[in-house]
Nucleic acid binder design. Structure first.
Lengths: 201, 201
DNA sequence: ATGTTGTGACACATCTTGATACAAATTTTC
DNA sequence: GAAAATTTGTATCAAGATGTGTCACAACAT
């Protein structure tokens, strides 16, 4: 987890209390001191005292197993909605990413080239690029990408991700035939390989 | 309640869903449009869908009866801790919103451009804009928008929201062909994307 | 060297959204 | 209270975005 925190941008943490080694409460406390990432605690215990301790510990919300996935989603949305309104620093803001001659304001559906020309992105392309950039350097499987972008499962013979990747490449790769920014990890998925700079950080 | 809201300063509302007359959800929705007062929903129903609907409706937290008083207290503290970090007065202001060269007094059915020219809005456009601005940065589905603005269900092939969006864009977008303020989230709905400032807060 | 499997590219059908026109409903004006 | 003006919803078509099927080819395995 600590490793991931250092190399990736994390917006929210869903944290199970029952863990081998350091337990959830401890982690929660530790995170609260250093970062300001919102936390949703998860537990199998129905102990009411635990609910309370968790909230008092600084967690942003709490959910006990077994839970309805839709509820988890609703709570995540709810927490994000709140934290998004907080002043910039605290919400691990995504801001602006710069890579390979492109400037990408994650909030806008376009990428701007060095010469100032903006290329518009469709909603799907935008979501895909956000997911890739947020996990730059990591290989994401098609399943993961589908989950991140559409939040759904893959169908049999689902080629939609490949297609969106292809369309995205056509727009941002200098030479779409030899992708340098979005490279394919054969048998694994796709990876955002260009180095990303976050000027506002 | 409405009376109290107008003459007193309220920091937080604990709202029961089961009420004679207008129900909690409806009140919650209504409050969300005008004020920013944090709400904790309270219910006897154990229906899981209600939990979800409540959170999605914009409540800040949720508690089902019977509850442990200490937990209610913990949740109140938790919610207040979060909302207190929000920009000062923002939480219960009805006030005025400024965005992208427009000034919008939510109470009036018009928007005023930088140069002082006022553009009149129909009541439908006004309600829609209020809903969008109140949830700036969030994507609202057509269903949600229909519910927020008209309080009704969608018909088969209901394009009324699209139409109102289109009319609103024609009035407030600098270039209605390339919307920057109200952007469409393909397959998802619409989002108020411009950054909003609340000068009186 | 050969077969198998995954990927890129393309065409096309499907679905979603934008734009326009028009009719119904509502509000305003006289 | 009737006519006029405005607003709103529905229908329709055009444009755009997405997903599926297919083929060729590259990467991998035997």
């Amino acid at each position: 987890m600590d490793q991931a925190l250092n190399c990736t941008r994390i917006d929210l943490i869903v944290l199970d209390i029952m863990l081998p080694g350091e337990d959830g409460f401890s982690i929660c406390r530790r995170l609260q001191e250093t970062t300001r990432i919102p936390i949703i605690l998860l537990t199998a215990l129905v102990e009411e005292t635990d609910r309370i301790v968790g909230l008092e510990m600084g967690a942003d919300d709490y959910l006990s197993k077994p839970f309805n996935p839709r509820e988890l989603l609703a709570r995540i949305k709810s927490v994000l909605r709140r934290t998004e309104m907080l002043p910039p620093r605290r919400r691990n803001s995504r801001g602006i990413a710069v890579f390979e001659g492109w400037t990408f304001d994650l909030a806008k559906k376009e990428v701007v080239r060095e010469d100032g020309v903006a290329v518009r992105l469709s909603s799907g392309e935008h979501t895909l690029l956000v997911s890739l950039v947020a996990h730059a350097g990591l290989t994401l499987s098609r399943e993961q990408l589908l989950d991140l972008t559409k939040g759904r499962e893959a169908q049999l013979y689902d080629r939609s991700v490949d297609n969106q990747i292809s369309r995205l490449r056509r727009k941002i790769e200098p030479d779409p035939k030899n992708p340098q920014i979005i490279v394919t990890d054969w048998g694994g998925g796709y990876q955002f390989a260009a180095s990303v700079v976050w000027p506002n950080d």
